[in-house]
């Protein structure tokens, strides 16, 4: 009986880590765009959906090998991010916060509409990246895809950390984010960096979708809830903070799965927004917000 309790707990924790990693990827992409442009991109979840759908189409439809499909879809969703910036954000003469939020919300609906036209209403799934038996650990068993999901978060967040803290270009990008005008006075082409941030924001979001495609089904509107939870994760960790995005995502994923497992599945979607409200009441700057900003 005790063993059963233990393996149940392990099962919940791994499920939590998995969905938490996905929220973390959405939050990382969200912060990426927010940090450079101050745009609160509510279409981040749609990037995730597009990543999954594109990858499945390339792999199952066009029969491309999985690694090729992964790389290509990452680039494609990144480019969708760039188009998003060029045609929706940049034409604005006076971008106010409210206008930007409404526009990204509109864009999210538009992307869902396009996805509905391309893929219809049926759910799609992808095979696991590497064929392996499910892994057993302390009596719990889970899909090996979990390792890919967690690995992606670790690699993505470490690369982002390295890029922004250690490279000259990364620091220039932070300078753009903090003070675009002063950055232009240094000769930094701010618009190029905005384009790069939308590319990376799209690519990271898309990557999240590809990672879960083998575990859960994806439908044309499947990104929305993920996007909202990723947004909650970003706020939980502190908007703009990359370590915060990872911690916020993991905490949210764990809370959600533990609450579902031990209390009631009723809490699955409620807990994210409960956590969002709580953090806004108690520490609105988030768990990891850097104080020097």
């Amino acid at each position: 009986m005790e063993n059963y309790q233990l393996s149940l707990a392990v099962q919940f924790i791994f499920a939590g880590l998995t969905s938490g990693s996905i929220y973390a990827l959405v939050a990382l992409g969200f912060n990426m765009i927010y940090n450079v442009t101050r745009v609160v991109n509510l279409a981040q979840g749609e990037f995730l959906m597009l990543g999954a759908m594109t990858m499945i189409s390339l792999h199952a439809g066009l029969k491309l090998p999985m690694p090729v499909a992964l790389v290509l879809s990452t680039i494609i969703v990144g480019c969708i991010g760039v188009v998003f910036d060029r045609f929706i954000i940049r034409p604005l003469k006076k971008p106010t916060l409210l206008l930007l939020i409404l526009l990204t919300l509109g864009a999210s609906t538009f992307l869902k509409g396009v996805a509905l036209l391309i893929w219809g209403k049926s759910p799609y799934s992808a095979p696991t990246f590497v064929e392996m038996k499910s892994i057993s650990f302390l009596g719990a068993s889970f899909s090996p895809q979990i390792l890919w999901v967690i690995g992606t978060v670790v690699v993505t967040s470490c690369s982002l950390w390295f890029f922004f803290e250690k490279t000259f270009i990364g620091k220039a990008m932070r300078a753009c984010a903090e003070n675009p005008r002063a950055a232009s006075l240094m000769g930094i082409d701010v618009k190029n960096f905005v384009t790069i941030s939308f590319f990376l924001g799209g690519a990271i979001g898309g990557l999240g979708g590809m990672m879960i495609a083998p575990i859960s089904f994806m439908v044309y509107d499947g990104g929305t809830m993920m996007g909202l939870k990723g947004f909650a994760a970003a706020v939980l960790g502190g908007v703009g903070s990359y370590p915060g995005a990872v911690i916020g995502g993991i905490v949210l994923g764990l809370l959600e799965n533990l609450a579902t497992g031990y209390i009631s599945s009723f809490f699955k979607d409620t807990i994210a927004f409960l956590a969002l409200l709580l953090i806004l009441f108690i520490k609105p700057s988030g768990l990891m917000k850097r104080t020097e900003d």
């Binding site: 620091k171 932070r174 300078a175 903090e178 003070n179 005008r181 002063a182 950055a183 006075l185 850097r290 020097e292 900003d293």
Partner: peptide, 12 residues
């Protein structure tokens, strides 16, 4: 140009 109000990058 050294702009008015210094405009240093406070987070760097």
């Amino acid at each position: 140009q050294v702009p008015e109000g210094r405009e240093v990058f406070k987070g760097l």
